[in-house]
Design a protein around this nucleic acid. Sequence first.
DNA 1: ACATATCGGTACGGTATCAGACAAACGCGT
DNA 2: ACGCGTTTGTCTGATACCGTACCGATATGT
Lengths: 251, 251
Amino acid sequence: MGPGGTLCLQGYVMVEIKQVGVRNNLLRLMSGECFDALALDLDYVELPRGMELSKPDEPAPYAYFPEFGLASIVARSPGGQHAEIGLFGRDGMTPTALVLDAERDPYSIFMQVEGAGYRLPAERLRAAFEADRSLHNLLARYTQAVTVQGAYTSLSNAVHHIDERLARWILMCHDRTDGDEISLTHEFLSIMLAVRRPSVTTALHVLEGRKLIYSERGVIIVRDRAALEKFAEDVYGECEKEYERLVGPLR
Amino acid sequence: MGPGGTLCLQGYVMVEIKQVGVRNNLLRLMSGECFDALALDLDYVELPRGMELSKPDEPAPYAYFPEFGLASIVARSPGGQHAEIGLFGRDGMTPTALVLDAERDPYSIFMQVEGAGYRLPAERLRAAFEADRSLHNLLARYTQAVTVQGAYTSLSNAVHHIDERLARWILMCHDRTDGDEISLTHEFLSIMLAVRRPSVTTALHVLEGRKLIYSERGVIIVRDRAALEKFAEDVYGECEKEYERLVGPLR
DNA sequence: ACATATCGGTACGGTATCAGACAAACGCGT
DNA sequence: ACGCGTTTGTCTGATACCGTACCGATATGT
């Protein structure tokens, strides 16, 4: 029997967790010894839509490493305005504030597409990377990747049109999920992009008219990924390159 | 003679650098031993307007800790669009990529308001924080502060009007400089805010009409800081709070 | 003082997006 | 099959901002 911790699903089943069977990039990329040490405290948990992985200005009790599903990082203004500044799934983890010795951050981080993943007590993770520089460096490089994602979101919010931003967003989701279907309402998308809901509807029509996607009630289906990338030329790609340089293959 | 390194100005004058005489927040906040060790390699250099402290996708040879002046962090899209994602002066340093084990980042970081500051070889800084966790943690918390600044810039770009964003930007400059005057052309501001140059002109007129600032050729003068903060209510303040929590007093 | 470059103010038409309302379509439970 | 809540499509008018152009005002150098 190789090394590995236990997996507790709904408190009943207990099986070994093997690093090779894991989908989360960060868990896969850490050293075997490091993984084995963490695995003792890793729990596999469901991550239903809307679940808050981290609340604004509160220290997160757990760190999460999604295996499936998508989480959004959203900033809010005092007056209640909000915008998504980042997005992650099995490519990432939360909270990066932990990595930066910040305890907490002002964002709301919640599941946007339901999934599941590994969780462990935040203090446990901190102890692990304080004892292992290579783990800390891996998480730090991921933190840089998220920061760069936020920077390009910022640029995009400032200068690009809604349909391009929507295309970028669909591509980012597609990178982090398995099939070509993404289940989301226009309402939800409008919050992510910080635009009106009807603006999402018309932007989706543009993409659909160009045969880049299919759009159905509650679902967006990627139809022609290459063409979608072409459409989003100026708005998609930079931070993905940066992720691949810093962490590893994204898809 | 107390501890401290040497200061080389234009290669002629050599004097001791004392931590208590330093303005840069990060240099002041690190431990005395840590400062003394770094001081051996710190050079005081002029930072003229336009000087690039870090070029996109190139490892920066030096780390800079400004004492005076302001630097901008700007992201560019492949098509040449650009937007400022952050701003620092004596409150910060560059490059934060170093702190995150990333070697380089995709931003252009350059002086916007001329000044001066301390510089030391990037590798020297890396060695220092690898040997001293408290230094690493300080720089990491600053990195978090910069990231949060970028996040709120992103939110702001998405949802706020130009005059509010301009007010925010003036406040951020004011926080980081000494008097009430900020020397900048409309052209330059338009690049920072990612808007047309005439939009800056009219936005300045709005702020001037409300008696929040004076605007003259090449200069903006803060006239009523409190009222300016009031005007920028929803757009200014969050990331400043975060900086003060993570690092220390900003002004 | 004059030429020259830079900077700032203004104007015009065009358009992306907003705010709000309403109606059609869909899907689920009974 | 029916009813109802959710989701999506569409409309109308308003507006913030854009692209571009042009001209006046201010600095700079000789």
